[in-house]
């Protein structure tokens, strides 16, 4: 029941961002399980949107679609955002814990699901001339989510608006740095493994 209530509370959060995000954290109205559900819904939305949108509005190559790539992309971006945000805000006197950030970020993504999912069947009954509505609603969904992310960060960490925007820009840079280090790490590990394997091989051949 707690789970359903916290999930239902997301509808309140997206319409009353400041109040909603405050209660989400202080009153413990949100839950990690609800956040995970929202994330799964976002992944599902992106897949359904790519696969089932009408031909008129669908510019994806359906024969080259890879569901795994979609899942990993959304999940990776979400995790990267949360980690980078947490790293930065713990240095910049942010009050949010890791769980707070994860919950707030997931709740901010709800409009993407709520608007884009109904747009998929709608795309099958409108012509290209009426496509403006389709585009407008898509843009609204992303703008809304972006706005919620700003308020979410602001309320969770008790920041001013200026500091929030600055933190968010830094977070994006941080995501890039983490990605870079990660790739570097993989590359180095790969070389070390090859190095050890070569030495082993060399020793085997000598004896």
């Amino acid at each position: 029941m707690q789970y359903l209530n916290s999930l239902k509370y997301s509808l309140y959060v997206i319409t009353h961002p400041v109040d909603g995000f405050w209660d989400l954290k202080r009153e413990k109205r949100g839950s990690l399980s609800a956040a995970a559900t929202i994330l799964v819904l976002v992944i599902l939305t992106s897949i359904i949107k790519k696969q089932n949108t009408s031909f008129l509005f669908n510019f994806n190559r359906l024969d080259e679609l890879n569901v795994v790539v979609d899942i990993v992309t959304v999940f990776l971006v979400y995790i990267l955002w949360c980690v980078a945000n947490w790293c930065l805000t713990s240095l910049m006197d942010g009050e949010g814990k890791m769980t707070d950030i994860m919950i707030a970020t997931a709740y901010a993504l709800v409009p993407i699901v709520l608007i884009n999912l109904p747009l998929v069947p709608v795309s099958h009954v409108i012509t290209a001339e009426e496509g403006t509505f389709y585009t407008v609603f898509t843009v609204i969904s992303y703008l809304w989510a972006g706005m919620l992310l700003i308020f979410g960060t602001m309320v969770t960490h008790q920041y001013s608006m200026k500091k929030t925007i600055l933190t968010m820009i830094c977070t994006v840079v941080g995501m890039a740095i983490i990605l870079f280090i990660g790739l570097l790490f993989f590359s180095v590990i790969q070389r070390i493994i090859t190095f050890i394997a070569t030495i082993y091989q060399e020793l085997r051949f000598r004896t």
């Binding site: 031909f55 008129l56 009954v125 012509t127 290209a128 001339e129």
Partner: peptide, 18 residues
């Protein structure tokens, strides 16, 4: 029109079909 990847004519046909 879908096989020919032509959205301009597709939407015209779709309009009549609807």
């Amino acid at each position: 029109f879908q096989l020919g990847n032509n959205r301009k004519y597709y939407t015209r046909a779709f309009q009549f079909y609807r």
